[in-house]
Design a protein around this nucleic acid. Structure first.
Length: 298
DNA sequence: GCTAATCTAATCAACTACCAGTTGATTAGCCCATTAGC
């Protein structure tokens, strides 16, 4: 079987893989110095600081973020023997205190979004969601080149696509393990909803069923123009009041159709003309709305 | 072997809608995450 692009779906293949990973970044001495200096100043730089560094170096912000992540990991000489020891250490990093206490975690001490502490929240448009969800149904763990392609299609940064897939995998685990090499990928998105075990209370990331959505069309799926991050170069103007479920619902039906087509093509008599075996696509949206989606896509 | 890239799991926080759920962003990783390119 093949996945989009005609690429083989055997993801385990490590040998000839083309761009399965982002090409390794090679830092110049100057860049490394700048990073080390910034790290010594603050091992948890804000988004704005990371962006400034990225601009200086002509690299994506995500590279800076990953560098800081790796650096923190590498320099974490955590032995609980209290004393921080010499001021030297690797890179002379002072106190890399992990913000462990609940509440003070991660962001250190919360700050307002205006300060640029964290990247402005991306708001995905229905069209973007549709593309991503569809891609997730086909391949929940896209490789680098596939993510780049998706980034182009959605006009999102590649790392936003990457993060979206990470979140998606943890919140919508695919039935029968993430990916099964050689298996028809559409089978990982079964059309029949599983019985809901019970409404999960707050924060239950991975205990969800494979397809938690019910097949009932939400009444209020009215497209309307929504806000987006103006002034944020990475945000996007198309953002309507669709919920993910609305889009997924549409997608579920599209996927069901694709699956049906697939099965039909596998089992059909080759003498039957193709036109005769393609079922009519039922649109969960008005034709008008549907075309709006399509126009948004292209 | 070093280290950039990647992963999972947990968590925070902005939004939406009506207070709890959804979801984008960030972080750690503990016999110090694993994988893979140079």
């Amino acid at each position: 079987m093949e996945v989009e692009d005609g690429r083989s779906s055997n993801l385990g293949d490590s040998t000839g893989a083309l761009a399965s990973r982002r090409p390794r970044t090679v830092w110049t001495a100057g860049q490394r110095d700048a990073l080390l200096t910034a790290f010594a100043r603050d091992p948890y730089p804000s988004f704005r600081v990371r962006q400034d560094l990225a601009r200086e170096m002509g690299l994506p912000e995500s590279r800076i973020r990953v560098w800081f992540q790796n650096r923190r990991n590498r320099t974490r000489e955590v032995p609980r023997q209290g004393a921080q020891g010499s001021a030297g250490g690797p890179s002379g990093l002072a106190s890399l205190q992990r913000p462990r206490e609940p509440g003070a975690r991660a962001r250190g001490g919360r700050s307002s979004p205006e300060e640029g502490r964290t990247r402005p929240r991306t708001r995905l448009s229905p069209a973007q969601l549709m593309i991503l969800i569809q891609a997730f149904g086909v391949e929940p763990e896209p490789e680098y080149d596939a993510r780049v392609k998706l980034a182009q299609e959605t006009a999102l940064p590649e790392d936003t696509v990457h993060i979206w897939f990470q979140n998606r995998r943890s919140r919508h685990p695919v039935c029968g393990r993430g990916r099964v090499p050689g298996q028809d990928s559409l089978a990982s998105h079964p059309p029949t909803p599983l019985p809901q075990p019970s409404p999960a209370p707050n924060g239950e990331p991975s205990g969800r069923p494979c397809n938690p959505r019910e097949m009932s069309l939400p009444a209020a799926a009215q497209p309307s123009s929504g806000p987006y991050h103006e002034g944020d170069p990475e945000s996007h103007p198309v953002s309507n009041n669709y919920t993910v479920d609305d889009v997924e619902l549409t997608l579920d039906q599209l996927l069901m159709k694709l699956q049906a087509d697939q099965q039909a093509q596998d089992t059909l008599d080759p003498h039957v003309p193709l036109e005769d075996i393609i079922p009519t696509l039922e649109l969960p949206l008005d034709p008008q709305e549907y075309w709006t989606f399509l126009l948004d896509l292209f």
